[in-house]
Simulated scan of single mutants.
Amino acid sequence: MTDDELYPIGDAARRSGLSVSAVRFYADIGLVAPTALNEAGHRLYDIHAIARLELVRTLRELDADLDEIRRLLDGGTTLHDLLTTHLRVVERQERTLRARRAVLTALIRQGGTAAQAGLMHRLVSMTDEERERIIDDFWNDVGANLDVPEGFVDRLRTMRPVLPADPTAAQLEAWIDLADLVSDPAFRDAVRTYLRDTYAPPETRPLATAPFQEFIHVSGAPLMEELLAACRAGESPRSPRAQRAVTRFMEAATALSGTPLTDEVRDRMADGYRQIPDIVRRMAEEDASSGSLVYDDTHGRYVSLVARINGVAVEEGPDSVPYAWIAEAMRAEEPPSP
């Protein structure tokens, strides 16, 4: 193929990937004119015209309209601007399709009705303000007259779903599930009952106080992460690095109650950490056998869905935490043998 070689319309169509009728149509509307006519009046195209035809085919497959293509070919816009505009269109279409997929998936999973379909579509189309209002209504209802330490519910409500501008289908599905749950009076009652039964009794009430919550979620979190980093690095729990980290953590924890960090306190805390997995499993078994409300079905369900919506890793169960390693690090150092 050379610059000055001319090709009949059939060859131009084949080389550009268009049909003969399409090439003829684009010539008739003045979009891509033939380069010349032969003696019989048949249209001929050079490689430049064929390249324009191929570009037109590509842009039409991307849903560019003929007026946009004409402006491009006439120099009224650039290919970059045209493609950028259509990328935005495709992204909007992708978000719409993703939302529809989430609705359809949820409906199929739940065996939904036409009324539920409308509700789910409304849920994924909500504004940020409407989503905030749903969550506020949920926590206002759950926290009403709940006998727990002051400020505890306010701290719980700070974990909120933030649906990104370009959510995945999984994030949309999680939002549908969450919005449906928090609007359900039965789920609200279940969360309220779980929080009351867990944090209202005298023996567990201190866990919901502001100082303890502040330590667990703010000041103590980096100290525990420092300790876990030593574990992940393969350090021995008795290594200097692990001992420095665990001592800082335990000193901060005991300071909450004004208790000095003695060897006795270290051993007591170590025993407590060593027993956590067994305690958690035993409580889960007891709750399951008694029909009691459990974390995973109430507040834990809320936390899990919010984490999925926010793209945050959900905390795993007790087996994923190296409690035995932490307990060994916490244990008071044994005095040297005489």
Rank of each mutant, 00 (worst) to 15 (best):
E286P: 03
S21H: 14
S219V: 03
W325Q: 04
S320Q: 10
H86S: 02
T105G: 13
I50K: 00
T254L: 06
R71N: 13
D319G: 08
W325K: 03
R100S: 13
A174N: 04
P322C: 07
E235L: 06
D296I: 12
E94L: 15
A230G: 10
D141C: 13
P260W: 01
A12C: 09
G220H: 04
P211A: 05
T259W: 02
V306S: 09
D297M: 10
V218A: 15
D3F: 07
H42A: 12
S219W: 04
A36N: 06
V148Q: 02
R274W: 09
A245I: 00
S219G: 07
Q93Y: 07
G143Q: 02
E203H: 14
V265S: 00
A327H: 01
T35G: 05
T259N: 04
V280P: 00
L73K: 07
A242D: 01
A36T: 07
E333V: 12
D263W: 01
R100L: 15
E333N: 09
L72Q: 01
I9F: 02
D177N: 09
Y45T: 03
D296E: 15
I29P: 06
A102C: 05
D4K: 10
E334Y: 06
A106E: 11
M250G: 08
Q110A: 15
P222W: 09
D74L: 09
D65K: 01
D271R: 13
W175T: 04
Q93M: 10
D4I: 08
N140D: 15
S183P: 05
E334C: 11
L181W: 08
A102L: 00
Q171R: 09
S337L: 13
G317K: 09
F187G: 02
I47N: 10
A332W: 00
D65V: 07
R157K: 13
L227E: 01
S16D: 10
R196T: 07
H121T: 15
P322I: 05
L104A: 14
E328W: 01
Y199M: 08
G10R: 12
F152R: 00
I69P: 00
I134G: 06
G300F: 05
N38W: 01
Y7M: 11
A252G: 05
D197G: 08
S257Q: 13
L79V: 11
L195D: 00
R71H: 14
R238V: 04
